[in-house]
C-alpha cells in the first residue's frame, strides 16, 4: 500500500519534472530563436539568406563580418542608405557609437554617483521632491522633448556634433545613474561611514575611501545598464546626427526593405551591434529587475 503510494508519488514527480523541462525548452527556444536566427543569417551568403524555404543547414561563412570593415563602401552605402565619408566601411558607425557611449557614460557616472551619494547620505532639503522629479523623467516620452531639443541643437550649433549627442545622452542617463546608485548607497550601513568620521576622515575621504569601495559591484552594474541604454538609443541619434556622427542604430534603421539587399551583411552588422547586450545579459542578470526599475525593485535571487 505504502509502496503503491510512493510509486504514484514518484511517477507524479517524474511527470512534473518532464513538464518543467519541456516548458523551459519551449520558452528558451521562443525567446532565443530570433537572436539565433540573426546570428545564423550573418553566417550565410546572400543567396542562402534569401532561400525559400529557409535554410537550416548550411556551411557558415564569415565573409559578411569581413565585408563590414573592408572597402565594400558602395554596397554598405546602398544597403544603409547612408553616404559615407571617403573610403570607409561600416566601422565609422561603430566608432561613433563607441565615442558617444563611452564619453556620455563617463560623465553621467561621475555626476550621477556624486548626486546619488549626496541624496542617500545627506538627504539635503528637497531630496524627495528632486528624486521624484528625476524619476518622472523616466516616464517622459522621448518624442516630447525631441521637438524642442532638435531646434535648440540646430540653433546652438550642437546638431551633428559629438558633444551635442554626448551631452544629451549624459542627461538622459543621469536619472538612471542617480536612482540606481542611490539604491546601492542606501545599502551601505551608515555606521561604517560614521565610524570613519570618528576615526578622523573628513566627508570627502569617507566618500572615496569608505563608501565608494562598498558599491563597486553596484557601480559596475549601473555602468552596464548605461552602456545598453546609450548603445541602443535611436530617436535622438536619428534626429541629431548626419554623416559625421551617425551611430550604428541609425545606420541599421536606414536599411530599407529594397529588394535584393544583402540580409547576410545586415545580420552581421546587427550581430556585432547587439554583441555587448549578449555579453552583458550574463553579467547583469542578478541586477536585471533592479536596473529596469531604476533600483526601486531589488530583484530576484
Amino acid at each position: 500500500m505504502a509502496n503503491l503510494r510512493n510509486n504514484r508519488r514518484g511517477r507524479r514527480k517524474i511527470v512534473k519534472t518532464t513538464l518543467i523541462y519541456l516548458s523551459t525548452i519551449i520558452a528558451v527556444i521562443f525567446f532565443i530563436f530570433p537572436i539565433y536566427w540573426l546570428v545564423a543569417t550573418s553566417l550565410k551568403t546572400r543567396a542562402q539568406a534569401f532561400s525559400t524555404p529557409p535554410l537550416f543547414v548550411w556551411e557558415p561563412t564569415f565573409r559578411n563580418f569581413i565585408d563590414i570593415f573592408l572597402k565594400r563602401q558602395t554596397e554598405i552605402e546602398a544597403i544603409t542608405g547612408q553616404e559615407l565619408e571617403l573610403a570607409t566601411g561600416a566601422e565609422i558607425f561603430f566608432y561613433n557609437s563607441f565615442v558617444v557611449t563611452f564619453s556620455s557614460i563617463a560623465i553621467a557616472t561621475v555626476i550621477g554617483v556624486l548626486a546619488a551619494y549626496s541624496f542617500s547620505r545627506y538627504k539635503p532639503a528637497g531630496t524627495s521632491t528632486l528624486m521624484f522629479f528625476i524619476l518622472s523623467t523616466r516616464m517622459l516620452p522621448a518624442i516630447v522633448v525631441a521637438i524642442p531639443i532638435y531646434f535648440f541643437y540646430r540653433s546652438l550649433g550642437l546638431y551633428n556634433t559629438y558633444i551635442g549627442l554626448i551631452l544629451l545622452y549624459t542627461m538622459f542617463n543621469l536619472p538612471f545613474a542617480v536612482w540606481m546608485m542611490k539604491s546601492f548607497f542606501d545599502e551601505v550601513p551608515r555606521d561604517i561611514e560614521q565610524a570613519a568620521l570618528v576615526d578622523g576622515s573628513n566627508p570627502v575621504k569617507v566618500f572615496y575611501k569608505i563608501a565608494l569601495p562598498q558599491v563597486l559591484v553596484g557601480l559596475g552594474a549601473t555602468i552596464g545598464f548605461l552602456i545598453i541604454n546609450v548603445w541602443n538609443e535611436f530617436l535622438f541619434a536619428l534626429l541629431l546626427t548626419e554623416r559625421a556622427t551617425r551611430t550604428v542604430p541609425v545606420m541599421i534603421a536606414g536599411t530599407r526593405g529594397e529588394v535584393g539587399i544583402n540580409w547576410g551583411l545586415i545580420a552581421a552588422i546587427e550581430t556585432l551591434y547587439i554583441l555587448p547586450a549578449l555579453v552583458l545579459i550574463f553579467l547583469l542578470q542578478r541586477f536585471l529587475l533592479r536596473g529596469m526599475t531604476f533600483g526601486t525593485v531589488r530583484g530576484v535571487k
Binding site: 550601513p189 555606521d191 561604517i192 560614521q194 565610524a195 570613519a196 569608505i210 569601495p213 562598498q214
Partner: peptide, 9 residues
C-alpha cells in the same frame, strides 16, 4: 559601534 561598523573592504 554596536554594529561593529568594520570596514568590509
Amino acid at each position: 559601534f554596536q554594529t561593529y561598523a568594520l570596514y568590509p573592504h
